[in-house]
Amino acid sequence: MAVERTIRHIKALATGAKYMLGGHRLTLMYPDDIQEFPDGYRGMIEYDWDTCIKCGLCAMVCPADAMKMYVSKEESEEGKRPVRRPGINYTRCIFCGFCVDICPTNSLKFTKVHDVAFYTFEEQIYPPERFREGIPKPQYDKEPRRVRAVLDEKRGIRYEPVE
């Protein structure tokens, strides 16, 4: 029993040493490295002003009340009746993507950006006029390296630079 225990202690230490020297690292070195997400990633949402038919399904299906129909001022004054368009509130959005999936004209689209970091609370609310301008471009102190996750038999996951 004592011999077996000793062997197991040694095995545990040897395994530890193997990994210490083997350089088996799974960590993504954020923010020096930034991961490019696969296609279909549910990130922040883009809005196409022209194709939207203002049906309001996105606001109806939203589980977190993030997507809401706002009265669009200019259009309402032109047409002399209230015209409503969707706007999004990123303080509430949970990125389920139901709004994108229910949109009958593909006016809402996923982007691969998920950096929901803002300075103020108000900045996170996107009424239709701001929503159409697209998502904010993340700003970095130093331009980060773009990496892609590659699944690997030996290492599990590797992060390879993207050109």
Binding site: H9, A12, D152, E153, G156
Partner: peptide, 30 residues
Amino acid sequence: PQGFEDKVEKVMRYLENRMPDYFDLYFNNP
């Protein structure tokens, strides 16, 4: 998605390869 089966197979093999090390370092650790 396209090529998903290959990726799954890679991860499954990885887990199988790694399991003995889990036993050596943790589960069988006295």
